[in-house]
Simulated scan of single mutants.
Amino acid sequence: MELKAKKLLTKREYHLYSLAWLIILLGWLGVLNYLSNKFFLRLDLTSNKAYTLSKATKQVLKELKSPVLIRAYFSSNLPAVLKSDLSLTKDLLNEYQVYGRGKIKLEVVDPEKNPKLKDELSSRGIFPVQFQVRGASELAVKEGYMALEVQYLDQRQVFSNIVDLQDFEYALSSTILKLSSEPPISVAFLSGHEEPDAYQDLNTLRSAIEKQYQFSVVNTTAGEPIPEDINLLLVISPKHLGEQDKYELDQFLMRGGKIIFLLDGAEVVQEYLVAFPKDDGLDDLLGHYGITRNHDLVMDVINERVSMRQGIFQIIKNYPLWVKIYVSQYKEAGLIKDHPFLSQLDAITLP
């Protein structure tokens, strides 16, 4: 009887130990699951970090409140070179999906397998791209899809040819940020005072802004207030602002708006390379906010060489007023950080 009781006790202990280990195991799994959600890590072992998303992109994905649908329309009949590029793009899109943590939905569609889809894509502004295919005895021109459609709630944006994008991650992340901003961020240029034209002189800047924000042009010359839905106003090199214009700028700031002033302290006559102090009427307004602007010229020993005429001779000499910045040297010295905007620049001249 004592032996049976002892065996029964041992069996009971075995079951208790098993149950305890099971509870411990489930507890550890719960802890690991919590840590994996809180501290997420992926390793990119490629030499150039081809699949590593930037911190800015990860932050954009982290702050998404609703799902983003990314549809990639890639044809199967593309040349090998383009297929290789699109394969890298797919890998990067997968990274977006992973770091989106359920907020990025990815669909890859081959329009060649669905002729009816092509008509629908045309109505949405998505068209095939032409490319050349070299055969044994001829050079043929064919068409295929290399497009991307990004949709957030009822908003959408299309990239008809993603291979031509210089910085795919920047373009896609900027689009996601633009579509998901609630309410959308609105940026405007001040006009009506002989500022550079937003659609001609500042076309590159305007295009870059439109990729990420809503854009408009506002005019205060008639005394109308700056619209309340404007978040940021750029005042770029106006000829002269009157008292009413400055009043509207001040009221805009008082309502919580933000202004970036990009002003010229001097007016340069390009034909003769002569400069005069520029009076745009903004010194008193800036002084009211504690900003003092000097109407000075900057010179530097590192400068651009210019061609000048002296009598009948044409000479080339250093011109200290045209400061030259060698981007690579500043990067090596740690004075500026790597940025997609600077990746293709070797030097910048500031005339």
Rank of each mutant, 00 (worst) to 15 (best):
S47H: 07
E120F: 09
K65P: 00
A136R: 15
V133P: 01
F74N: 00
Q59T: 11
Y145P: 06
R101S: 09
D85F: 11
P111Q: 09
S36C: 07
K118G: 03
A50T: 12
K142Q: 15
P111V: 08
V60S: 00
F131C: 03
S87E: 11
K105T: 10
S87P: 00
L69K: 13
G125F: 06
Q97W: 00
S47P: 01
L139D: 11
L64Y: 04
I70C: 03
S137H: 12
V133L: 15
F127I: 09
A80F: 10
V133G: 03
Y73V: 03
N37M: 10
Y145V: 08
T46E: 04
L43N: 09
N37W: 12
S75G: 09
K90W: 02
K118V: 15
L92C: 03
K65R: 13
A147S: 15
G135N: 07
E112I: 12
A140P: 00
E107T: 07
K116R: 14
E63V: 04
I70Y: 00
V141E: 14
L53E: 01
Q130W: 04
P67K: 04
K55V: 11
Y96A: 02
L88C: 05
Y96V: 02
P79D: 09
L93V: 03
R71Y: 04
L53F: 05
E63S: 11
P128R: 03
P111W: 05
K62W: 08
A136G: 02
S84K: 13
S75P: 07
L117D: 05
G100P: 01
K49G: 07
E112M: 13
K55A: 14
S54L: 01
G144K: 06
D91M: 11
L106N: 05
L121V: 07
L78R: 04
P128A: 04
V109N: 05
A136S: 12
K65T: 12
L93R: 01
N94D: 09
K142T: 04
A50W: 10
D110M: 06
V108D: 01
V81A: 12
F127M: 09
S75V: 08
G135M: 06
K90Q: 11
F74H: 10
L148T: 00
V141R: 10
K49P: 01
N37Q: 14
K49I: 03
L69E: 11
S87W: 08
K58S: 03
R42S: 11
S47T: 09
R124S: 10
P79G: 02
Y51S: 01
T89P: 00
E143K: 12
Y96S: 01
T46F: 05
R101L: 11
L35Q: 12
Y73R: 02
L106R: 01
K83I: 04
R42M: 13
A50Y: 10
A80P: 00
L92N: 08
K142G: 10
P115W: 05
L64S: 02
S76L: 06
K62M: 08
K116N: 14
L61T: 03
A136L: 14
A56T: 11
P79Q: 03
Y73C: 03
K62H: 12
A56E: 15
V129W: 05
P67Y: 04
K113N: 15
M146I: 14
K105G: 00
L69D: 06
G102D: 07
A80S: 12
N94T: 09
R101V: 07
K83D: 10
T52N: 04
F131Y: 15
L64M: 06
L78V: 07
L35T: 10
L106V: 05
